[in-house]
């Protein structure tokens, strides 16, 4: 099939950038979206032109590296799917597709469609873990955890840290991402010791990074490729109030 692409091109972080139009032909419906871009790039490289820079790594929906906003939707039109798993079956011959980077002050564009998500790392560093040194653990079955709690923890922990929640949010809020990590440990016994400190410092770091504020519109939940529930944000809100009230 033949497609018209409008792609955000920006030479580096300082460049102003703008949309550039490309035509691609002979796209197979079996290709993934990123393979379609690979073909575009091969053509550009053969002509000695700078290919479109975009992030991707595992290309199987788990590393969280890929990050394109397609026609206004982070990760494109399929629900619960990252861009790398989006296939060209989703499009028809003659379609026009707009491709933009994640847009947020806390995710500055580095080049073209690549953004810097180190703000997410810094939030995790602020407390997204259980402080246990290697070698300190007791036998794993000494700590029975009911299946529902384990399942709920997994649901939260499945977050791939791609940032689609921020990209989708009208306010570029990182609440869903942060609440997923806070929520994972909030439902597990291992997370209780540092529960208060964790939510307070992770939220503090989130605010410091300049993300927007949640307005409960749940665009994040709808865009999340791993279908993280907005209920984790509700849990984090409550956790945050309780922790604030009981921490000096």
């Amino acid at each position: 099939m033949k497609l018209t692409l409008h792609i955000w091109r920006q030479k580096d972080a300082q460049d102003k950038g703008g949309m550039v139009r490309y035509e691609v032909d002979g796209v197979s419906e079996h290709s993934s979206f990123l393979e379609m871009l690979d073909v575009l790039n091969d053509g550009l490289i053969e002509k000695g032109q700078d290919p479109v820079a975009f992030d991707s790594d595992c290309r199987e929906g788990i590393c969280g590296m890929c990050s394109l906003v397609i026609n206004g939707r982070p990760h494109g039109p399929w629900t619960a799917t990252t861009v790398c798993q989006l296939h060209m079956r989703a499009y028809r011959d003659g379609d026009t597709i707009y491709i933009e980077p994640w847009r947020a002050k806390s995710f500055p564009v580095l080049k073209d469609l690549i953004v810097d998500r180190s703000s997410f790392d810094r939030i995790q560093q602020a407390g997204g873990y259980v402080s246990v040194n290697t070698g300190n653990a007791v036998d794993a079955n000494c700590l029975p955890i009911g299946k529902p709690a384990a399942d709920q923890a997994f649901d939260a922990a499945h977050c791939i840290g791609c940032g689609a929640c921020v990209a989708a949010c009208k306010n570029a809020s990182a609440m869903l991402f942060v609440s997923a990590k806070v929520g994972q440990f909030a439902v597990l016994p291992q997370g209780q010791t540092e529960r208060k400190e964790r939510v307070l410092s992770m939220v503090e770091q989130m605010d410091k990074e300049g993300f927007g504020n949640c307005t409960n519109q749940y665009e994040c939940e709808a865009a999340c490729p791993k279908e993280i529930s907005a209920d984790f944000m509700r849990m984090m809100n409550l956790d945050y109030f309780k922790s604030s009230a009981t921490t000096s």
Binding site: E100, R103, K105, N171, E219, E221
Partner: peptide, 16 residues
């Protein structure tokens, strides 16, 4: 919130 997204999307889309 406005400051958190200084550059707007060319194509805006709202899901929910």
């Amino acid at each position: 919130n406005r400051r958190a997204r200084p550059v707007k999307y060319v194509q805006e889309h709202t899901q929910v």
